[in-house]
Amino acid sequence: MAKDDNTPFAIRRYDAETLREALRKMYLIRFFEEGAEDSYTRGLIHGTMHLSIGQEASAVASCLPLTDDDKITSTHRGHGHCIGKGAEVGRMFAEFFGKEEGYCHGRGGSMHIADVTKGNLGANGIVGGGIPIAVGAALTAKQLGTGAVTICFFGDGANNEGAFHEALNIAAVWKLPVVFVCENNKYGMSTSTERSTAVKDIAQRAAAYSMPGVTVDGNDFSAVAEAVQEAVDRARRGEGPSLVENLTYRWRGHSKSDRNRYRTKDEIDSWIARDPILRFREELAAHGVLDASGADAIEAAARREVEDGIAFAKGGTDPTIADVTKYVYAEARS
């Protein structure tokens, strides 16, 4: 099968196994979030959650260039990044259910899922909170010469936080190996980027910090992969940070309390019609990477994995009440 210049970047660059795994992760994200939503409705999960259904390509394609030594920082809408970076849905559900088996032993919940061993430094409840931290992780890599790259996920809302500007400036001044990936889903809660952000494209912000900035269709798996791969390669070469803006859309509301008063059904439907999973699946089929039955099998397996994950979480252990102050500080050294 020919891989000429018209072949999408992802198909040219990655082997079939990697691409099939990417599709699996996208389905996992979709079903994980649908499962989480269903569990919430059934009262199995308390608190709230921020769903990224519709944004799966951005999460998975951005993580594609990374190894377990590389780091990411994530956001409150972070389930996709987490799965993209290799987390197990069972332990994620366990965290959702507040169980000891969860990634944070039930202390963090949806907004703080992390897997430090896989380089996921954690979701963050503070808009823009993870951006300087990502830069710090990049500083470690540069200082210790580990060769690791950090991808810093953030939303369009964060681009107006002071932390964003301070961190991008520091990263540029110190030429740190970090890629800022903005998932622009058009709304910071209810406020559109048009109403909140002075520049048309958030990628334009990069110019102020003398780093490359590019805007891509965030629902196009290959487009995202291409932009991020290039930025990661640049970082690994020691040429400093880049900014990639993935234009995407969350199908669901901001959180479970959202009544969707700020956008129209037509707008939502038009984005649902651009489902990144279906697009990727069709692309794989078109280029002969995966036929329909193969894709169905991946989809079914992802569904089962999510069901198993929920069952695992339901059977988890509740934390001991006496341990409410455990993990505030390191255990005393003996």
Binding site: K71, T73, V116, L121, G129, I131, P132, I133, A134, V135, G136, A137, A138, L139, T140, A141, Q143, G162, A163, H165, E166, A167, N169, I170
Partner: peptide
Amino acid sequence: GGAGVAVGAALT
């Protein structure tokens, strides 16, 4: 930003 960079550096 500086303090956050320090946090990220310490974390890693």
